[in-house]
Amino acid sequence: MKKGFLKRLIAPAILGVICLIWILPIAYGVLSSFKSEVEIKDTRFHFIPETWTLDNYKYILENSGNTPIIKWFMNSFLIAVITSVGVALIISLAAYGYTRIKWEYRDQVFYIVLALSFFPQIINIIPLYKIVDTLGWVNKMPAAIVPALASVTNLFLVRQFMLGIPIEFDEAARIDGANDFMIYSRVIMPMLKPVMTVVILFTFTGQWNDLLWPSIVFNDVQKMPLTPGLQLLMGAYGNFNTAPVITAAMISIVPTFILYLFTQKYFLQSLSLSSGVKG
């Protein structure tokens, strides 16, 4: 069968070649983390390390008072998890309100929200810091968590997916006597498993990798999350040691990597939408 041939041979072959090239930079990064600094800066190009060394990992994972790696990991983890759950909840509620309920000016309000979110956020940090400070959140987790809950890109994303769900489902449930909240939680949300997984994945990764805002808002070495913390390993005049920085990058990617492995199957599920209508 033609499809089988494509599936088993041609597509994998092409994809395989592409992926080999695709992963080159990352492979280089991983291998570099096992090289000594001298080797990385050497005049000749090294792909595979001549001498494998664990020094870089030792240097970074040395959980000292000034670079408490474990604390940073924990902080990042908490921030990312709480934000992800918060976003999933708040955004899905809002998306429902912008798609499933008819009210005056509904779409206009949404578009205004969307348009405002496109404004470059640069000078923002000055008033934002002041607001966060007024709330007493400087150096504390809510500063990193709450502003991120306003994520309009995720709102837009979930809204788009919700638009794709036929209205018949709502109507069928309403006939059965369901109110809006019940339709939201029992009908719509289960169908959105794929996109909600994506939202969680994106939010978690975004929070995990965020550098600028956390470095502004956290002063205390003990309180800060991982990404700004790892910045401290870089030298003042830009004369940083490349090896630790690359190694740090490799270490930071582990949690998001694991998250991706877990969530992979959820956003790939083929849902048969017709199954719900019969009832």
Partner: peptide
């Protein structure tokens, strides 16, 4: 593999 780069932060990617 295709998704992997997206998990990195910009500083790591730039450096590599």
């Amino acid at each position: 593999v295709l998704y992997l780069p997206t998990l990195f932060s910009i500083t790591s990617v730039g450096l590599i």
